[in-house]
Every structure is written in structure tokens, then in C-alpha cells.
Write a protein that binds this DNA or RNA. Sequence first.
DNA 1: GATAGTTTCATACAATTGTTTGAAATGCAA
DNA 2: TTGCATTTCAAACAATTGTATGAAACTATC
Lengths: 220, 220
Amino acid sequence: MASDHTRSAILAAAERLYADRGFGDVTLRDIVAEAGVNLAAVNYHFGSKDELIAELFVTRSIATNRERLRELKAAEEQGGGRAPIEVILRALVGPTLRGCLGPENQRSTAARFMIRASIESVPPIRRIKNREIDHLRKFAGAMRRALPERSEVDVYWGLNFALAMAHHTIRESERLTKLSEGKCDLDDVEDVVERVVSVATMALTAGRTEVKAPAKVAAR
Amino acid sequence: MASDHTRSAILAAAERLYADRGFGDVTLRDIVAEAGVNLAAVNYHFGSKDELIAELFVTRSIATNRERLRELKAAEEQGGGRAPIEVILRALVGPTLRGCLGPENQRSTAARFMIRASIESVPPIRRIKNREIDHLRKFAGAMRRALPERSEVDVYWGLNFALAMAHHTIRESERLTKLSEGKCDLDDVEDVVERVVSVATMALTAGRTEVKAPAKVAAR
DNA sequence: GATAGTTTCATACAATTGTTTGAAATGCAA
DNA sequence: TTGCATTTCAAACAATTGTATGAAACTATC
């Protein structure tokens, strides 16, 4: 094992390049050049290109999920097992948004890598990705506890829309800036978070404030 | 020109394969095999692989935009130059959702291709994609006319969120089905359209029903 | 300081990719 | 039919990719 220097240099370079340019057009030769190591080092340390990607994704996936669950657990414990829906949604979309948006220099490579992974899903990632469903299920559970009158289906849709707004805004941030001629300030991350959270909250609570009623009609 | 048979067979096969498997892992050999034509035919008729993709994208892009604008124009003319925001949003997200979701057999290859193009944007598409901004600007204009009291920034955010929900739902439809254990019915396209439209409408009108007031505070 | 195990390196390999080539086939006008 | 342009085809080409190899360099233990 010795220094591990080569190994971690590869991981860092790969994550940076994948985050910037996507999996499609980053070759092993690009990675080793960026890392300043030999081409054969990748196969020596990771076995194959796919295993490198998988290791990268697993590591980051665990970290991101832990971050989100930490916020969620803290909120629920504080509220005696039930957190306000806004807080839950903030725990869901906040970390990713904060990691990907914001002033240029503080953008997180890890977060941008995860967004790439969620977009152009390559085989090694696709194989692992199913686990994330369990993670989302925990959020769905918390949301149902926060909105007991709400139908299960509506909660899933709200969760889906919250992730939709967060991810899409990240992916298309450049286009939104161009479309709005800079008027939408994507560097003001907390403003973006609040916009997403507030719309998702409305989607989950509108037309159903206190009522106990059947399912289908909701969220209209 | 003669029959054009080969040319259109290539276009059809390419669109189908790209829609199904993405640009990343579809080779020219896959396409010509599917089309039942010779490998060299692609370069003979289109010049290069990139030009084939570009032609496909341009054709579909024009058709999709025309479809959306047709709905929009019809609505605005009927309302004397100003359509209700719900109708505008339906014109924006309806065609794409209807094309991509719904019972297996009636899903549109064209719509799925366009979603692929919006996801894993390859160089030839990226070069053209800027034009779509002009198209979105027309929708932004109609939305501003429908919501004159609303700030410009809020309208752009509403537009962004509407597209976000539509596209994300299409992209992650499989995951939503799995997460909800089939309870979210993605075959009921009109239900999905109404959900997206209603949430986007709320995002654009909440907390600002009749008031004439400054910007920032909105959509909270 | 010799030796065994680990890591790095230049280089080669095999497979796949988009593209080109030149001949054969086809269609069409005179 | 003849002649000419268009279209199709099998085959080869050149470039790029991930991977494998075997020797060299290094590290640590005795």
C-alpha cells in the first residue's frame, strides 16, 4: 500500500474531469495525464475503468446520503419524531444545491460529479444506483409523517418534483442564466434553495391544508 | 435523389436507437444494421455521424417547437392576446409529456429522442441548442403577459421549474414507479400533465394573487 | 546491504470506432 | 441499347480506446 499517493491522485483527477466533462469524453489517458501518473496505474490500483468509476460513485453516494440523512435526523429528533415539511425538503435538496451552485470557486467537485452520475448514467453506476431508492424511501417516510393527511401518492409526487427542480436547475443553470439575461442569480444559493423548497411545499400542502379526505383530487 | 429509401431508413433507425439507448453506446454499425443498409451509406448521405445527429435533432426540434407554439398561439388568440397561465404551461409541457409517457405502445420515438438529446448533449447538438433559447423566450413573453404583476425573475423561475418537473418526471419515470411501488401511475399522462401544470401555476401565482408589488419576496 | 514484495513505467495488444475507397450495381435519359 | 450519374457495397484504413505485459525502480524487512 505504501503511500497511496497515486491511487488518490487518480481518484481526484477522475472526479474533477468527470464532473467537468462528463463520462462520455474523458479517457483513461486524460485522467492519468491530469493526475500525473502512468497509464497502467489505473488498472493496477482499480482493476478496470469501470471499477474506478464505481468506487468513485459509491464513495460519494455514501457521503451525500449521510449528509442529507444527518440533516433529516437532526430535524426529526428536534421535533419529537416529526419535522416540518419545509425542513425535510431543505435536507433533501439543500446539500446538493449548495454543492453545485454558488460562486465559481466554491463549487464542489463531489456534488457536480454526482449530478453527472445522475445524468449520463454509465453501466457501472447503473448497477449500483438501485440502492438510492432505499435512501429516498427514508425521505418519503419522513414526509408522510409530516403530512399524515396527505395521500401516499401525493407525497411521492412532491418528492419527485422537489428533486426535479433541484437537479434541473443545476443541470440547466447556464441556460437559465442566459434566458433570464443574468436576472436569475444562481450564485445566491440560499435563494435558490428557498425557491425550490417553497414550491415543493406548496405542491405538497395546497388544497389540503387541514382536511382529511381521499386521494386523487389533491395537488390541483 | 431517386428513392430516398436508404436515407430515411437510416434516420428512422438512428432515432429509434438513440431514443432507446442514448448516444453513448450506439454505433454507426448498430444503426446500419437496424436500418438494413450498408455502413458507408451514412457517410454518403449525411457526411458524418455528427451531421446525422444534427439533422435528426434539427428536424425534431423544429417540429416540437412548432407543436408547442401552435397550442400557445391558439390559446392567446382565443383570449385576445392573453392566455391564462395554466393554458400556457400546458402548451409548454403537454406535448413532450404526452410524447414520452403513456402506455408502452403509443410512446413517441421522436419525443424520447428529444429527451435524450436534452440529457446527454453531444457536441453536434450542443452547437445547435442555443436556438432553443429564442423559443423559450416566446413562452416567457406569453407568461409575462398572463401575469403582468409578477416580476420578470419570478416568471423565469416558474418557467424553469415547469420544464424541470416535466423533464425530470420523464427521465426518472422508472425510478418514480419503483419508489412508489407502482402507485404513481405514469401511464395516466393527462394526470401527470395536470400535476405539473398545477404546481407550476402555484409557483407562479402564490402569495401574489392580485397585488401589485415589488419582486423578490414572491414564490415563498 | 541483500532480498522479497510492491509500485511505477514504457510499450505493445486487441478491439472498436468513424471514415474512406474503388469497384459493382442501379436508375434514367438519349 | 448505350452512356452517364447516382447509389450501394465489401473491404480496408487510421485513430482511439481499455487492457495487458515484463522490465525497471522503489520500499521495507531481515
